[in-house]
Simulated assay, not measured.
Amino acid sequence: MREIFAGMPWWVKWVAVPVIALFVFGGLIVGILQVLVGLLFKVLVFVALVGGLIYVVRKFMSNSSSRSDW
């Protein structure tokens, strides 16, 4: 591979090849990023819902136990 790029100018290696790679694989990269961002969002929503549920249950349990004390 080094022999192929040996006689090429620097801009072919560092500009043209990455641009062509982004053009060819851009849809794949965007698709993977969408899946990762969607998964991260779902994980954050899950954590928030579970945290809210735990908060509500603890609040309810502490209120019900304090009512039975008197």
Score class of each variant (00 low, 15 high):
G26M: 00
V37Q: 02
L44S: 05
G51A: 15
E3W: 07
V43G: 08
P9D: 08
D69E: 15
V35S: 01
W10E: 13
V45T: 13
G26F: 02
S64L: 08
W11E: 13
V17L: 04
L49K: 11
Q34L: 13
R2T: 13
I20E: 07
D69M: 12
F23V: 15
V24M: 03
V24L: 09
G27Q: 07
F41K: 13
Q34F: 11
V12H: 12
P18S: 01
L44M: 11
L22C: 13
M8I: 05
M8A: 11
W70D: 15
Y55A: 07
V17G: 06
G7R: 01
F25H: 05
S64F: 15
A21E: 11
L53E: 15
Y55D: 02
V45Q: 06
L39V: 09
K13F: 06
I29D: 04
F41L: 07
I29K: 09
V56Y: 14
S64C: 10
V37K: 04
S68Q: 10
L39D: 02
V15H: 07
V35A: 09
S65C: 08
L53W: 06
S64W: 13
V57L: 14
M61Y: 08
S62F: 10
L40R: 06
S66P: 00
P18M: 00
V24Q: 02
N63K: 13
G38L: 02
G51C: 01
L44E: 06
A48D: 12
F5P: 04
P18V: 00
R58N: 13
I29G: 08
L44P: 04
A21L: 15
G7V: 04
G51Y: 00
N63Q: 09
M1R: 07
S62P: 00
R58I: 05
A16T: 11
G26K: 04
G31P: 02
G27E: 10
G38T: 02
G52A: 00
V35R: 01
V17F: 03
W11K: 03
F5T: 09
V45W: 02
M8Q: 14
V35H: 05
F60C: 01
L53D: 08
L36Q: 07
G51M: 07
A6G: 05
P9M: 02
E3V: 11
G38N: 06
W70G: 15
L28D: 10
I32A: 10
F5G: 06
K13M: 00
E3A: 11
S66A: 15
F60P: 01
V37I: 15
M61D: 03
I54E: 01
V30I: 15
R67V: 15
G27V: 05
V50G: 03
G52F: 04
S66Q: 08
A48M: 03
V50A: 02
W10I: 10
R67L: 10
G27K: 01
D69P: 00
W10Q: 15
F23G: 14
L22H: 12
S66W: 08
L44Y: 07
P18W: 03
F5V: 12
G7M: 01
V12S: 00
L36Y: 06
I4N: 11
W10C: 06
G31Y: 03
F41M: 10
Q34C: 09
V47H: 05
E3C: 09
P9T: 04
V50H: 01
V15G: 07
I29M: 10
E3K: 14
S65I: 13
G31V: 00
